[in-house]
Simulated scan of single mutants.
Amino acid sequence: MKNTLLKFVSFNLVFLSAAIQAEEARTNLDAHVHGVSELMVVAEENALEIQFKSPAMNLVGFEHQAKSSKDLKAVDKAASTLRQPEALFLMSDAHCKLINMSVDLSKIIDIDHQDNDHDRSSSNHKHEHNDNGKHHDENHSEIMVTYKYHCQDSTSLPSITVNLFEFFTGIEEINTMWINQTGQGGITLRHNNRTINF
């Protein structure tokens, strides 16, 4: 699984340009864009891994450290939702059971506020950001979630319906890449097109 995941992660933008429609390929998957999230799905034999990455703005409505009661409630609500993958991802015919989950909120919440049993690794970067025509450097906080499943046979998984849009209205599209034993592909999911077909 690790070798397949590493190969998958190393795919370059040439592959993405071919796999995603021309308009969608113009979106740089490494860029932090409000409204846009990323999803990676890797299936191999009995293993299935789903990685979801999103600007915090899409999920909680802000990117600063949560300090106020209102902000902390928003983080708790997002964390609770992200810990319910059975509602977020509808899988058909693979008989998959969740074996591990990691929800990383470390860039928007103090470590003291986090539960001790969750991964505290972080993802944060600076980049040029266009806000009403003004370019400036900003720190942008991201939320990263990993779900690992054991399946009877991941090759029998024909599709996954992604319901993140239903729970997080800040998500407008999800740039998705997938790989399994029979191929690989990419798609941009939207509210009216939420299914990954393998």
Rank of each mutant, 00 (worst) to 15 (best):
L6W: 10
S10R: 03
F11S: 12
L13Q: 08
V14D: 02
S17C: 07
A18I: 09
A19N: 00
I20D: 05
E23S: 04
E24P: 00
V33N: 04
V33A: 03
G35F: 00
E38T: 11
E38L: 14
A43V: 05
E44C: 12
A47I: 08
L48R: 05
L48P: 00
E49P: 00
Q51C: 07
K53T: 06
S54C: 11
M57V: 04
M57C: 05
N58Y: 02
H64Y: 11
A66R: 00
A66Q: 01
V75N: 02
V75H: 02
A78D: 03
L82N: 11
Q84C: 14
L88W: 08
S92C: 12
K97L: 10
L98S: 04
N100V: 12
M101G: 07
M101C: 15
V103E: 01
V103L: 05
L105H: 04
S106Q: 14
K107G: 01
H113S: 12
H113V: 11
H113F: 13
Q114V: 02
N116M: 15
S123R: 02
H129I: 06
H129P: 01
D131P: 01
D131T: 12
D131F: 08
N132I: 15
N132H: 13
H135L: 09
E138P: 03
N139G: 09
T146N: 07
Y147K: 14
K148M: 12
H150K: 08
Q152G: 07
S154R: 08
T155A: 11
L157P: 01
P158R: 04
P158V: 08
I160C: 11
T161P: 04
N163E: 11
N163P: 10
I171Q: 15
E173Y: 11
N175A: 09
T176Y: 00
Q181T: 12
Q184E: 13
Q184S: 04
G186L: 04
G186M: 04
I187Y: 05
L189P: 03
R190M: 12
H191E: 13
I196S: 02
